[in-house]
């Protein structure tokens, strides 16, 4: 399926971690996803939870891996991720057999994104992130979460050059690591 201009623009906004774009997508496809999931007989509250997880996983893949969808749309991508999460939930509830039968009629291809559970250390580190300064958190987020290059960070922020970004990042990282060790 070829993408429309607005789909391409939305993708671009997602890559730039634009939360408003994410909200637009969330609202636009929520009812359709809930209707789609009815064939799997899952509680609506569970479906909403799955939909939110799918939206978040999709968004983070745009932000962190900076993906560009060439042959599918945001909707088919989102529903593919959502479908995988629906199956996962059904498997947990041991209702897989019926799912495999239903799957044949489906128009969405299941998409599995990497979903290793975070380690204990990574979870602890996530908590420490709230304890560093806002300026440091933002800089580290641009580098480690959004995977922006040093040059891109210079363009997007007030730092005067790449060396300033590098030295500031190194100081912030040291600070984070010290916090992690101490607590």
């Amino acid at each position: 399926m070829k993408n429309t201009v607005s789909d391409d623009q939305l993708q671009k906004r997602l890559r730039a971690d634009d939360k408003k774009a994410l909200e637009e997508i969330y609202v636009a496809y929520k009812s359709e996803f809930i209707n789609y999931s009815k064939r799997y007989k899952i509680e609506t509250s569970d479906v909403l939870d799955i939909y939110q997880d799918a939206i978040i996983a999709m968004h983070q893949n745009f932000v962190m891996s900076r993906i560009e969808l060439k042959t599918s749309t945001i909707k088919t991508y989102l529903f593919g991720i959502g479908k995988n999460k629906l199956f996962k939930r059904l498997k947990e509830k041991q209702r897989l057999l019926r799912v495999e039968v239903e799957q044949q009629k489906d128009e969405y291809t299941e998409i599995k994104l990497e979903s290793n559970l975070p380690t204990e250390n990574q979870l602890k580190l996530a908590k420490r992130l709230n304890e560093i300064s806002g300026t440091c958190k933002k800089l580290l987020q641009l580098f480690y979460y959004r995977n922006l290059t040093i040059e891109e960070i210079v363009e997007l922020t007030h730092y005067k050059d790449g060396n300033t970004v590098r030295s500031h990042k190194s100081r912030c990282l040291k600070n984070l690591k010290t916090l992690f060790k101490v607590k």
Partner: peptide
């Protein structure tokens, strides 16, 4: 170490987004 920090941000951002969507609901 790089991966740990990236995952930590991923977890932290996902928590924030989840709270945001719950508020939206």
């Amino acid at each position: 170490s790089h991966k740990d920090i990236a995952v930590a941000f991923k977890v932290s951002e996902a928590d924030k987004l989840k709270t945001y969507f719950k508020q939206l609901e």
